[in-house]
Nucleic acid binder design. Structure first.
Lengths: 341, 341
DNA sequence: AAAAAATACTAAATCGGTTTAGTTTTTTTA
DNA sequence: TAAAAAAACTAAACCGATTTAGTATTTTTT
């Protein structure tokens, strides 16, 4: 039944100890003074018997898996799949591997995934959390388990974090709209919107309006329930574009909402930028392909992922001391979806 | 230094054997006649000491990891990230987890990843292979290692496979173009194009042309080197749209090429469908957002992933016997990128 | 020629679980 | 009342590696 070869099998075959076999296979044979002749014998045997190390056994012994977990809300979201790819590549350069899980913005699911990844002895986690409260992360900190928050932060804890200036970026984008002559901007935000990035963007939106001398009225901020984005966006756009109520400028708070908006624009025959000026958060490929292309806030994902990986691997290798925070300033990429009026 | 609690620690604390602790934690206590009182004691202790099982140790003993590996060329490609998501969800329902790796269409990288996933003792693999020759898979078959090929097949081996009728779908799409009045269709294919799906699509393209009474000339098939898609697509489009050489219809063999085409259309001011009729393989979100939306061949990814998972888990649970093949017929979704002429 | 050093190797503990094959004590049956 | 059965638990082997602390043999040094 046992159809794989272990070092014990090889040791038996060769008439040597498994210590010796292990040493040879781990390039520690010279240090231990194993003769070259014996080393070659072992190596040859390994090839002949098609030996494959059992990394579980190895991991159990040395207490490492060389695996990092990535927790995001949805790996099919291009923002996160790109993130996964960058992280995978950076990790690969240091011989670490990646396991990815989607949480669907579900708190309980996320908790379970984090627990599971720890039980699998992953060496560390990179998390874009959907949690409302940072209890899980407080626990991880208490237990010195290495992790980095990415994209979404908790201000009440002191953890490693890599993210962007959501407030400033949004503020700037809204100011841009205002500067182009729009004094009636509506923002579509996902709800529940307790994750830090969304909250910050909402604040940036609100303050930019106020600072522009525009009275902020609650109707300017439309909440789109996370699990029925597509339907709600269309409904809301229908409402907003009724003749007596025509909005002029729309800000989509993330790519999910933005894609739903773009689809709805098509279906409802809304013309960008003539009917509505449109700005989106998170730059994704699709924004370049629409007519006109979409003005969007671009997160420097590659740099973010680079730092997330570096911080995490550093902490894994050296006894963790202080926590690090890296905050990038995203840029507003001007395309054709806003025209001066 | 040891900062986690093991069943041995709990056994010591409670003054019982670790056998007992293990049995209780695995719900095998009743069967073994452990008294309820003792069971409660153990459970309470586990909670108090914040016990977390070590799934590596468990996996080593029982020879399972409950983990499946997914090998694709690029997880940032929306086709594959959607695939990953579906697979993740189907696996999750049966308490399996997913690890994903990108190969960049690199043969050697793919071989290494497959080896690594096996060494990590993953219970099985789902692979969209970039290999030219099926040597790795022959080996897996020989060793009865469970795996399912998805999207790309090898006709020279008898392995589990889930895919689509690439030939028919392409044939049908090209016939559609011809039917709309285009007798000069160019196909942009990736090269190297030895993967089965691409080969089949190319054949479908060629035969559809021939069967339509159109002389197939080599210039109708343009090879785009995989690692410089964007640049080459633009160059080729420039050539093809020179006044004396104006093509009328373009077929993009996958979403990578298609997205590059769409970007180039923008940059070169090529108008779809007036200047060129355009059909793409793989339906991705972006195709719905362009003006006009893109006519595309849609793979039933969800169903494909469902079967891939079922076949794989079946084989893992039961001694493998015969191999299964599931082939879907994708549908051509007519949008606005082809107009009758 | 005895002591020290170098060479070439190995026994056994360990990681943290699972599982087989018991053992001991109490209760039931014949 | 002896034998069988049931109840409650456990010792020890095992999964496949790594690693510590050796041992045995040969070679070098004094």
């Amino acid at each position: 039944m046992k159809n794989h070869v272990s070092i014990t099998d090889m040791a038996k075959e060769l008439g040597v100890s498994k210590t010796l076999v292990s040493l040879v296979l781990n390039n520690k044979a010279d240090k231990q003074g194993i003769s070259k002749k014996t080393q070659n014998k072992v190596l040859k045997c390994a090839k002949k018997m098609n030996y494959k190390p059992n990394l579980m056994a190895r991991g159990l012994r040395i207490g490492k898996t060389d695996t990092i977990g990535l927790v995001v809300s949805d790996i099919a979201n291009p923002f996160y799949s790109k993130m996964a790819r960058y992280i995978e590549d950076f990790l690969g350069k240091q011989n670490f591997h990646l396991a990815i899980c989607s949480t669907d913005e579900n708190t309980e699911k996320e908790s379970n995934i984090i627990r599971l990844m720890r039980e699998k002895q992953f060496d560390g986690l990179i998390i874009s959390s959907s949690q409302k409260k940072p209890d899980d992360f407080k626990q991880l900190l208490r237990e010195d388990y290495p992790f980095v928050l990415i994209d979404r932060n908790f201000k009440s804890i002191k953890a490693n974090f890599v993210g962007i200036e959501n407030y400033d970026a949004t503020y700037h984008a809204i100011k841009h709209l205002v500067g182009q002559g729009y004094n009636n901007v509506t923002a579509f935000a996902v709800s529940p919107c307790y994750v830090s990035s969304i909250k910050e963007r909402i604040n940036g939106f609100r303050d930019a309006m106020k600072d522009s001398g525009i009275d902020f009225v609650p109707e300017m901020l439309v909440e789109i329930p996370f699990n029925e984005v597509k339907y709600t966006v269309k409904e809301e756009l229908l409402k907003l574009t009724r003749p007596n109520n025509k909005i002029k400028a729309l800000f989509a708070i993330n790519n999910n909402i933005a894609v739903a908006c773009l689809e709805a624009f098509q279906e409802l025959n809304i013309n960008i930028p003539d009917d509505i000026a449109f700005v989106a958060f998170d730059d994704i490929d699709a924004y370049k392909l629409t007519t006109p292309p979409i003005t969007a806030i671009d997160q420097p994902l590659e740099g973010m992922c680079y730092h997330a990986v570096q911080i995490l691997l550093n902490e894994i290798n050296k006894p963790a001391k202080s926590k690090k925070s890296v905050i990038f300033s995203p840029s507003l990429i001007l395309r054709g979806s806003v025209k001066k009026q």
